[in-house]
Design a protein around this nucleic acid. Sequence first.
DNA 1: AATATTTGACCAAT
DNA 2: ATTGGTCAAATATT
Length: 285
Amino acid sequence: MDIVSNNKAIMLKVMDQLVQGHELATKLQQLLSQHGSGRGAAGDLVAKISASFSDTISDLDSFEPIPSSLFTAVEGSQNASCNNDGKLEDSVDSRKRLGPVKGKRGCYKRKKRADTWTVESTLLEDAFSWRKYGKKEILNAKFPRSYFRCTHKYTQGCKATKQVQKLELEPRMFSITYIGNHTCDTDEVTPNINPCVHHDDGIMDSEEFKCPSLRTSMNEEEDNHHHGSSTESDLQLVWQEMLVFGEEHNHHHHEAIYGCGETSASIYGLDTTDLWSWQRFPVQR
DNA sequence: AATATTTGACCAAT
DNA sequence: ATTGGTCAAATATT
């Protein structure tokens, strides 16, 4: 018991230090981008450092001794065949064959612990390619919530997902909750295969949404982005947003551990975007 | 053809 | 029983 609590304390401390490191890296990232050097080699490095912290935090976070129970919970999702009677067919094609019968449709294990954080942004796209897999009306919410998973979930086993929901107070913005970190192999700038996510009307109104008031002064180039002009020399990568508020990052999950103060109010009115938020124009095609 | 989205059904957690 | 998250067939898009 003594050892247990001691280990726990160490764990907390380590986690605390990691989070601190992550915050510092994030701040450095901000600084760099403010000085226009966010895209150079230095920016690259900081991004990697930040990601490294993030991954480590995530790993540590999902670590638990698990005394007796089998560790089926987090990983399996769709692979874990959920035949209670142990029938256990091929997990691969078991998903194909369940006709109109009472099948095991929708069988899955819910993720318990994962690196989770929420940002609010007018931007729906980021560096990753997502595949929408669900949409749900949420109780007492005006707008539905949409569910996305990483496109490479099955090819690379990437477990990252995100949920997107329009804010009631500020319908031009979206609350975007990221669950889990990407483990897929996306080259840092993904040359040409970076499918833009098509968001349905349920999320995005048809009108072009730009929200000047909510964009902070962080991004200089952002303001003169010429939409649609897309000359052939134009790079698709137009701007990079990277300001993550350390206090906000991982807020949800870690607050339980550290009891960080309730700071959620602080995100209102702030333009928080996710760490990998790279806006890309839907040029040609 | 492959690949993405829509949408109701299904399941876990509450 | 209700709610939210996921699956997968049907459908749409490329």
